[in-house]
Amino acid sequence: MMLKKQFQILTVLLITQLISGCSGYSSAVNSLGPETPTSEMRAQIEAPVDVAEGQSPFCVKPVEADPEMEPAMAALPPEPYRARLYFIFDTSQFTAESEVAAKQVFDEIKSRQIAEAIVIGHTDTMGSEQYNIGLSERRAERVRQELIRRGIPENIIITKGMGESELLVDTADEVVEEKNRRVEIDVR
């Protein structure tokens, strides 16, 4: 009698366990593995696509160059070359590094079939606007003379002085900033 009751209780317990076990199992997707199953490739898949430098991820890399395309590729003009030459405060004298950079500009011009050099002078905000326009023009002229001295024909050089109107490093007025004392050269 006692045994029968015990058996009954055990059966009920077993059934409830089975049911709860079952229902528990069905609600959890993965009760044995990690809490949230993740693919090893997840990071890779969800990573933002890098489209830097205008490159689409669907760009096809050419497997081999088509010999018929070679003349067209060879005819591509060289990429425009840009340089900045820096100056010593209130002078049109190059800094030491810029002496070297000037040589590079010269070589770039020489390597082209036909080149234009657009030379634009700038100053920092120290001094009056009017004075700085003159100074920036003298700096551009200094670069022009340097290029002519090295054998670049005068007629391909265009010079301009912007004064303190186009700062590279934004500063308040009357601030000495070496990065603003520059000449920007665009070799095309």
Partner: peptide, 19 residues
């Protein structure tokens, strides 16, 4: 023959023969 063009925005184009 061939020709190469530099556009204002720095786009570069090269054209091969018979083009």
């Amino acid at each position: 023959s061939s020709v190469g063009i530099l556009f204002n925005d720095d786009t570069r184009v090269g054209a091969g023969p018979n083009t």
